[in-house]
């Protein structure tokens, strides 16, 4: 009995002494920090995607606390809601920003863009891109090895098994742009999500002359300029044989979609037209 009591007392004493020592050490080495940083960080999604332009969520939280206004500060993943919460904690004004999503600017599915050879090697777009043009004849299109899939912290991108193209889940995508930075061919653009997810964009990055581009892919932009002429808002520019739709100017009238001879212009999430769908592309799989 005695032994038990002695051990309990000894252990308790050791514990107590250790606790006291720990307390003083913790006090001594304590880093002074604004406690709000901790709270703000807790509100952030913790994806550390870098989409805000800062080095991770902690860094963003620090900048939010230090900044005078939250103007231009946006966590692309958490979106406006998160920013509102942060603003209320910090007593600052949140600035609304339109939600943005990654948009795949290539529609070279296996059907549209026949594969002329087969790649065997490490499954990485960067390696394939450095090695050669890719499995199809297009030097600008998607390589399909999924570097964007592996870099996405939010699991928003997957490769469609039939088209071999990446598909963005707009519900999960925070528009951080990590995929856009990773893609060696630069075919991913972060564009405004639009009302009900409606977007109009050129689904092609091919800068070759029309004939060459068309030869490698059925739905290539051939730089003919019909869309630019048709557009009532001057939202479309052509450079290097490639059309680009400025999302700030585009009013989603979809006139360009109708005139595009190759069907390179994509219109997503619009209700089906009454008469007939003019585009021949598989837009459904793009979503």
């Amino acid at each position: 009995m005695n032994i038990i009591i002695t051990s309990i007392i000894t252990l308790a004493a050791i514990g107590l002494i250790a606790a006291v020592i720990l307390y003083f050490i913790a006090q001594h080495f304590k880093v002074e920090e604004d406690p709000r940083i901790e709270i703000v960080e807790g509100l952030l999604p913790g994806a550390n995607c870098g989409g805000c332009g800062k080095a991770g969520c902690r860094n963003f939280a620090e900048s939010c606390v230090k900044a005078d206004t939250l103007d231009g500060m946006l966590c692309p993943v958490g979106g406006n809601e998160t920013m509102k919460k942060i603003a209320s904690i910090l007593g600052k004004e949140a600035v609304e920003a339109a939600p943005r999503v990654a948009t795949i600017r290539c529609n070279g599915s296996c059907q549209n863009r026949p594969r002329t050879n087969s790649y065997e090697g490490a499954s990485s777009c960067a390696i394939t891109h450095n090695l050669y043009i890719g499995e199809s004849g297009c030097a600008y299109g998607c390589l399909g090895c999924g570097d964007c899939v592996s870099v996405c912290h939010l699991g928003a991108i997957s490769i469609d098994s039939t088209t071999k193209l990446p598909v963005v889940d707009t519900d999960k995508c925070g528009g951080c742009g990590a995929c856009a930075r990773t893609c060696p061919r630069g075919i991913i653009e972060v564009r405004p999500l639009g009302i009900k997810g409606r977007r109009v964009y050129v689904g092609c990055m091919n800068k070759e002359k029309g004939g060459i581009a068309r030869k490698s892919c059925n739905v290539a932009c051939i730089g003919c300029g019909k869309c630019a002429k048709e557009c009532p808002f001057d939202a479309i520019t052509i450079s290097n044989n490639l059309a680009y739709i400025d999302s700030n100017l585009c009013k989603m009238c979809r006139k360009c979609v109708d005139v595009c001879p190759t069907g390179a212009i994509q219109a997503l999430n619009f209700p089906p037209k009454k008469k007939s769908e003019t585009t021949t592309t598989d837009t459904s799989t793009q979503q």
Binding site: R115, T116, N117, S118, Y119, E120, G121, L131, Y132
Partner: peptide, 8 residues
């Protein structure tokens, strides 16, 4: 068949 391309 399609030609195979792979790194060395």
């Amino acid at each position: 068949n399609k030609l195979v391309v792979s790194p060395s």
